[in-house]
Design a protein around this nucleic acid. Sequence first.
DNA 1: GCCGTTTTCGGCCCGACTGTTTTCAGTCG
Length: 572
Amino acid sequence: MAVHNADVAAIFNRLADLLEIEEANPFRVRAYRRAAQTIEDLPESLSGMIARGEKLSTLPGIGDDLAGKIREIVESGHLKAMDEVEARTPSTLAALTSVPDLGPKRVHMLHEELGIETLEDLTEAAAAGKLKELPRFSAAMEKKVLDELRRRGETEQRFRLSTAEDFAEALCTHLRTVRGIGEVVVAGSYRRRKETVGDLDILVTAKDGARVIDHFVGYEEVDQVLSKGTTRSTVILKCGIQVDVRVVPEESYGAALHYFTGSKGHNIAVRKLGMDKGLKINEYGVFRGEKRIAGRTEEEVYRSVKLPYIEPELREDRGEIDAAFAGTLPKLVALADIRGDLHVHTRASDGKSTLREMAEAARARGYSYLGITDHSKHATVAHGLDAKRLAAELDDIDRLNDELEGITLIKSCEVDILADGKLDLPASILKRLDYTVCAVHYRFDLDRDKQTERIIRAMDNRYFTILAHPTGRLLGERPGYAVDLERVMAAAKERGCFLEINGHPARLDLDDVRARAAKEMDIRIAITTDAHSTAGLGAIRYGVDQARRGWLEADDVLNTRPWPKLKAMLAR
DNA sequence: GCCGTTTTCGGCCCGACTGTTTTCAGTCG
């Protein structure tokens, strides 16, 4: 059984949770968490590194001990140290700390005093009124725990970025009506443009914090008020999303924005740099002793530790600080760099808009070209095109291109990769296309090796150009199919194929880490929308966000080029 | 458990809010 990075990270995280419940040395706990983070962010596989004899202890936060443990997990699928801890402290206890108000200390007590091991035990004990009897528990808390456990079944815990945007924008509009309000900005993972958002962190500048908070908790969408002070408050909206609002004075705006944008790892790293210079950095500013020396803008905060400004999408503690020092921060691709979309559908298959409508919408966005990629015949539910219907569409495109000014339609197709790795249409029609977008749409259940080989075999076809949504995941709905993307990328590189960042908010596939790995392998990426209507073209910005999180520059992205240049690149 | 130009021991980010509390621990971000 192959062991993946995510498996190793999960073991370390669980071990950290359990050690914390056992009240182990908190710094040891942190070391496991930090190692798990490093591993999650690692663009290459640990098993591959081990096979190549690379030293794992060169990775940040991984010393000789953890390197040995990683090797043990990768080689045996198992960690003895974990078994030993689990013998004392059942692994199921780790899940309990995800319940609000239950940290390691209380979970420890629940285990010791009531013998609780699982969420089910916890629900039972809470329902039986046993929690409130314990020291440092109360009836109110018991009720809160019960409510939370009930709520869990009903609402999902993370929201797609696009969904979070809907809630956030409405709430910000509400906040901006407060008298005396200054800035209103959504910070946190939302500002870092993470693909899903757990909660919203809203930063506000104002002199009168209490007034802002009163107005905030009075928002009609507020379902529960979890805390309410004069500078901060936490609520849960009716849609289930948690929102934190923080009010700071204007002179602290930059420091607070930096602080609340995170990520935590990035902040810690910056704060440490400050400490080295005898500075204290918190959400109110940068201080030397009692004296505030910076904090009005984020640029000031960075400048105080001799760093250039770092874009929010890069603030994940994945090497951006070192890059900033070295002057090698990427000049991130921007929405304005995109010259055309390469993956869209029309009514010919399962889209809602006509060729002409799509073309005009693309032109209105300032694009100079639009690649038409209706489904191929295997996608029967999507009215996929057979060779004959595709030929007819290509003729339509020719005719329309003669009429259209300022936009060129490009001939393409989203070709199904069949289960055996063949493409769904014959060469006789594929050769008429300028490029193809190839995708797996069924048989997600193949095992990892078979799925990987299926895709690589498809790439052997000279008409294969871009691999669409490489993992097939749908955020909040289904995980991707099992596939060895490292091998797929290496195969793409060899054959001159490309990968996609599909900007559809449910896909965002490739993800940030994989996109960066592709960049490092010198594989160019197409940022597309998979639009099924003219409105769908707007999703390009989510794709750009994901690309920026993957450190991509304009040159790394195929469709930042004018069509003639791009056409030459796509030819195999 | 990691780390190091102050390096093999002794550090390891910091503040707000809540209520377990009445002077502070626990939790969260």
